[in-house]
Design a protein around this nucleic acid. Structure first.
Length: 567
RNA sequence: CGGGGUGUAGCGCAGCCCGGUUAGCGCGCUUCGUUCGGGACGAAGAGGUCGAGAGUUCGAAUCUCUCCACCCCGACCA
């Protein structure tokens, strides 16, 4: 492709609204442009990368027996009402104004719709159905360029099986395919145990890329490889040990003491002597959660235990429900259900709020003073705690979710009536799995992982063109002649070439654009070296430069490509 | 949805507090000339409903109100 005839609007300056590196570089390289918050156009160069990613995904999905569909993004709302997910998605789902349609945020319902009409016998399974298609989610806050958009490309796959054992097989096939896909794309990633959230189901794993731009938080153990989304992560922390003697309940005046730290400082006690209270609303009823010291409530764990969604109580509700403001709330005389974290189990001589502003209560014995108290693991894991498996120190960091695989089980088949007859003529629900990959996120993560101060560094797999040919001075006849010849020859040999043949652009301009765009090999044709019948070859990743005789150019390029740029 | 910020030429910004010629600067763009291997130089140009609407005023980019858009933090999120 001749750059002089192409639309590749590179930017020298960083657009004001871009903060995340991948966003900045993709904008500057003329690969994407924003239309509206969370809605992006791919320009020709960027779309070439999308197609490369999609091709890899397609190959690996086909390799595990996947069959590609193309399902409608425009869906009648009734199908979504069958599973109750219109409500579950809430405002995240786009609704049309002039017809009872929605824009699909995912496709479990549509797949199940087709499955129930067609898959009637155990002989019809297993099936793996997938598509690579645009999804719509009305994100309250899109961010980080194409990492979180309101419209985005997703590879979504669904498995249909006769049993949970067979679901495991389909799930493992996807696990393997996903690893191949991300490996081939040149990504460093890891796999973590995850929450299945609103998707429902019995098990799930996420494919994560470590990144400050990420919105998920991951706990990771370097020594044994334990990796888990903090939503479900566990660590080894000491529980309370019960004192032999329980003290008397006593109310203590604690003016202006709100946080656990303030309480400890005021009473000169340790935080492990404190029970922190958080009030949630579950099914319109108040729920008090007790945590040891400064431990944070993990709302995902809480919701899993309760089997429904909770919300933190509003400030004005707290006073009404407990008689006190946040900071003075506690379990004694609390009117409602109370659940305590396992670390507090059977603790005594504890301090907590008195449900009266500026007062705390000491000498609490949970066994004595909080009857019928339930315990559960409700903690959020912190960095530096011991790994649940090997007791080494856990690392906690941000990560971008690239893909997510779920064992759905029967959630959709039961609610939508997708049944089959087994070998004994007995009717059973289809056992389903669902598997997603964010296409734009692969690209963003790649750029996050492969760039330097000058721009993007593509390897030979995802790059929009394999070679960037720079004719340094188009006003010199010999430069044009040789460049044109190289361009034609390489193209005829099946090597894709972006040919910077811009007439007016100066050498420095072309060098900088080439580094920004990041094709793996640059061939630089300049008057100076042409006099010795040589051109320069530069490897973008390493910065290596070679002066090559024109006759040996093909050989050299083949040689460089033979080396795996990212092993 | 809560908090904070921004909106002036294609991009990056100044001007606004303290209202007053024809709204500036850098980059980019057009034309001509010079230059030509790391974002050149000179000269001459084009390009603006100052986010939108209403108000105050003799006069508004500037003050007031409403709305919109975008960014960041949080909440939420498969």
């Amino acid at each position: 492709m001749r750059l002089s005839k192409s639309f590749v609007p590179t930017l020298k300056e960083v657009p004001n609204d871009a903060v995340v590196t991948s966003h900045i570089l993709l904008l500057r390289a003329g690969m994407i442009r924003m239309l509206s918050a969370g809605i992006y156009s791919f320009l020709p160069l960027g779309y070439k990368i999308v197609r490369k990613v999609v091709d890899i995904i397609r190959e690996e999905m086909d390799a595990i027996g996947g069959q590609e569909f193309h399902l409608p993004a425009l869906n009648p709302i009734e199908i979504w009402e069958e599973t109750g997910r219109v409500e579950a998605f809430g405002d995240t789902m786009f609704h049309l104004k002039n017809r009872e349609y929605i824009l699909a945020p995912t496709h479990e319902e549509i797949i199940t719709f087709h499955a129930r009409n067609v898959v009637k016998s155990y002989k019809d399974m297993p099936q793996i159905w997938y598509q690579i298609q645009t999804k719509f989610r009305n994100e309250a806050r899109p961010r980080s360029g194409i990492i979180r958009g309101r419209q985005f490309l997703m590879k979504d796959a669904y498995s249909l099986d006769t049993s949970f054992e067979n679901l495991d097989k389909s799930y493992n096939l996807h696990d393997g395919a996903y690893r191949k896909i991300f490996d081939r794309c040149g990504l460093k990633y890891f796999v973590v145990g995850a929450s299945s959230g609103a998707m429902g189901g019995t098990g799930s794993e996420e494919f994560m890329v470590k990144s400050d731009a990420g919105e998920d938080t991951v706990a990771y153990c370097e020594s044994c490889g334990y990796a888990s989304n903090v939503e479900v992560a566990e660590s080894k922390v000491d529980a309370l040990s019960r004192n032999k003697v329980s003290g008397e309940l006593k109310e203590i005046h604690t003016p202006n003491v709100k946080s656990i730290d303030e309480l400890c400082a005021f009473l000169k006690i340790n935080e492990t002597q404190c029970a922190k209270s958080r009030v949630y609303i579950f099914n319109n009823k108040p729920l008090l959660i007790l945590m040891l010291g400064n431990d944070d409530v993990n709302e995902t764990k809480l919701e899993k235990i309760l089997g429904g969604t909770v919300r933190p109580g509003h400030t004005d509700e707290l006073k009404e429900l407990t008689g006190a403001d946040a900071g003075s709330i506690g379990p004694i005389s609390f009117n409602g259900k109370i659940i305590a974290d396992l670390r507090l189990k059977n603790g005594n001589n504890l301090y907590s709020g008195a449900n009266k502003n500026d007062y705390h209560v000491g000498g609490i014995d949970l066994m004595r003073d909080v009857p019928e108290l339930e315990y559960a693991d409700l903690r959020t894991v912190n960095a530096g705690e011991q790994c649940i498996r090997c007791e080494s120190k856990l690392d906690v960091f941000s990560a971008i979710e690239l893909g997510h695989i779920f064992k759905l089980g029967t959630k959709y088949s039961l609610s939508m009536g997708a049944m089959f007859l087994d070998e004994n003529g007995k009717e059973n629900p289809i056992i389903m799995g669902s598997y997603g990959i964010g296409v734009e996120r692969i690209i963003s993560c790649y750029v996050e992982q492969h760039h330097d101060e000058n721009g993007i560094i593509w390897d030979k797999v995802l790059t929009p063109f394999q070679v960037n040919l720079l004719a340094l001075n188009m006003k010199k006849g010999n430069v044009v002649e040789v460049s044109d010849k190289i361009y034609t020859e390489l193209t005829n040999n099946g090597i894709s070439v972006l040919y910077d043949d811009r007439f007016d652009a100066q050498a420095g301009f072309k060098f900088n654009d080439a580094d920004l765009l990041g094709m793996p090999i640059q061939i630089i044709v300049g008057d100076k070296k042409l006099k010795e019948n040589r051109v320069e070859v530069k490897v973008r990743e390493t910065g290596e430069r070679f002066d090559i005789e024109i006759e040996k150019l093909n050989e050299k390029i083949a040689d460089i490509f033979k080396r795996t740029l990212y092993p």
